[in-house]
Each structure stands twice: as C-alpha cells, then as structure tokens.
C-alpha cells in the first residue's frame, strides 16, 4: 500500500522542517556569538558569558510564562511590571512572618493578579491589551498609594532577610547561579507543557482557531485563564529574585519587563497570530537579546541607544513575520 509510505516520508520532511523552525533562532544566536568572538577578545571570556546569562535570567523567567499568553493569541500581559513590584513589596513586607509564609504570600499575590486577568480575558472575553493595561495602571497607582511611594527593605539582621538577600547569589555545584538554573528548568518544563501535553495541544488550537477549539470540546475559557496564571507565576518568581537582587521592594521594580518579554517571545518564534512556536525558541530569543545587549555595550552603545535598537528589532520581527505569514496565505484578518 502506498499511502502509509507516502505519509511516513511526509512526516520526516515535516520533522526536519519543524526542527529547523525550532532551531532557527539558535542558528542566528550561534552566528552572533561567532561574530562576537571574532570582534571582541573579551566577549568569549567565561565571566563575560556567565554575565550575559546572569543578565537575561530574569527576563527569561518572565518570557517563558508570557509566551503561553502569546501562544494562545492574547499577545502579552501588560501588568507584568507592577506585578513584579507587587510580589517584591508583599514578600518583603511579610518577612516578619518567616521565610516560608512571606514567599508564599508574595507568590499568592502574583497569582491572584494572574487569576483576575485570566478571568477577565478568558471568561468575560475582554481585550487582553486594554484590560491588562488598565490593571497595570491600577496596580501601579495602588502600590504607590499603599506604600506612599516608599521603598521597603529586607532586614539583613534576621535569618529570613539574609536568606532572601542571599537567594540570587546562591550557586549550584558547578557554579551555575540558582536563577539561571531556575530559568533552564522552567524552560524545559514549559516546553514540555506547551508541546507534549493535552493542555498544550488545546492551547495551540485555541490560539490558532478559537471558535474551532470551542466547538471541539476545548474548555477555551479555562485554557485562556491558565495562560495568564502561568504568565503571572513565572513573573512572580522573577519579581522575587529581582527584589532580592535590588535589596529592596519598590513600585517601579520590573519596569520594562513587559516590552522586553514580548520582544524575546516574538524573537523566539512565537507568532502574535497564535498557535505557533515553542518555549525552547523563546529561550533562544532571550539569549539572543542578552548577547545583543552585551555586544552593544562592548561597541560602546549606551542604554538609550540600546532601547532604540531593541525597539527597531521588535518592529522588524513583527513586521517580517506578519508579512511572511500573509504571503504564505495564512490570513491575519
């Protein structure tokens, strides 16, 4: 019979194609690293490379969760920055209760905001951009008001405070920082969740064709809600680490993480049109941003210039993918 033969060949072609798609961003990354090695002797030194990794760790953790929202075709949770601030403030404020309760309270606060966003977007079908923008504005104002614009500091004299402040400095055997290890573990877990589980499969369908998903028995509202909770979860973890790194909690912790995260997600091949891409690609996108920033610093481009470049890259990637998908016939209203 010829049909199974033909189908297995098709499968192989598509497998290599998929592999290439998934690895595309990694190829770019390797190319950029090679260029960096040739241009700057300092670039390839172990401490510089470790530094790059350390610098993108928090962004990576945020982007891994955020990519689920994008994959489900709801773009991005714009309340990421105040969410990170909120988690930091709550955790540090609750430290008199002990390390366990304070971390738990901080994470709970973050997840509650994720739940609120997921409910509004998933169940009430509100526009994700407008809704999370409103939540972002509200939360930012609320935190400034509640803390009267002040910072809170962990008390380094208590064991709780010391444990908290030491968190980002801890390393695993082999010298890998705890945060980086967390990012890698989350990336693998996220990749598994997105590509190999029932939830991931249902999310893919929801992202690429919402009505079809709803009429295939997918509980679309719950699926959408979960993406916002996942995004809030990794964002909260990043918020904790960032506050510990800054040795303080303030209302503007996390500024810029919303835009950087969506840039990394899109650069990593998760289309804004939903249902395309994967978490390992996003990890590649994150590392690419890290390498780019590092190279720009070595080239002497200041932080303002770097913002301009990041903005340009985002515009180029979004424009290019939109153009390519339209050309390939995948309509995008």
């Amino acid at each position: 019979m010829s049909a199974p033969l033909a189908s297995s060949r098709q499968l192989k072609i598509s497998f290599t194609k998929r592999l290439l798609n998934a690895l595309g961003i990694w190829c770019v990354l390797v190319g950029l690293v090679m260029a960096g090695l040739l241009a700057f002797p300092k670039f390839g030194q172990a401490d510089n490379l470790l530094n790059i990794l350390r610098n993108v760790t928090l962004l990576g953790i945020v982007a891994i969760g955020a990519s689920f929202v994008t994959y489900g075709r709801h773009y991005i949770d714009l309340s990421i920055p105040p969410l990170m601030a909120c988690v930091g403030l709550v955790t540090i404020s609750a430290q008199p209760l002990g390390i366990g309760p304070s971390l738990l309270l901080g994470l709970t606060a973050g997840l509650a905001i994720g739940l609120l966003n997921g409910w509004a977007v998933g169940y009430l079908r509100l526009n994700p951009i407008i809704w999370t923008l409103a939540v972002s504005f509200f939360l930012d104002g609320f935190l400034r008001w509640a803390y009267a614009g002040h910072q809170v500091y962990p008390d380094a004299d208590t064991t709780t405070g010391r444990f908290f402040l030491d968190l980002p400095q801890r390393t695993l055997p082999g010298g890998i920082p705890v945060g980086t290890a967390l990012m890698l573990v989350l990336a693998l877990a996220g990749h598994w969740l997105m590509t190999l589980t029932r939830f991931g499969r249902q999310l893919q369908l929801t992202g690429i064709a919402y009505d079809v998903a709803a009429l295939s028995g997918v509980r679309v509202r719950r699926v959408v809600l979960l993406t916002f909770v996942l995004s809030a979860f990794t964002t909260s973890l990043a918020g904790l680490l960032l506050s510990a790194l800054n040795r303080q909690g303030t209302f503007d912790t996390g500024q810029g993480y919303d835009f950087n995260a969506i840039t990394a997600v899109v650069l990593g091949g998760v289309l804004l049109q939903g249902g395309r891409g994967n978490v390992l690609g996003v990890l590649g996108g994150v590392l690419l941003i890290g390498v780019l920033i590092n190279l720009m610093t070595l080239l002497g481009i200041g932080s303002f210039g770097q913002m301009v470049v990041k903005g340009l890259i985002f515009m180029a990637v979004v424009g290019l993918t939109a153009w390519l998908t339209r050309r390939s016939g995948r309509s995008d209203e």
């Binding site: 598509s14 690429i208 064709a209 079809v212 995948r330």
Partner: peptide
C-alpha cells in the same frame, strides 16, 4: 471554515 477546522493546522492535528 470558521468552526470546523483549524485551516492552518495539519489534517492529522
């Protein structure tokens, strides 16, 4: 077209 098939997914999916 709008409720039955995800047109840009594969037949297998």
């Amino acid at each position: 077209k709008s409720e039955g098939l995800a047109l840009f997914n594969t037949a297998l999916q």
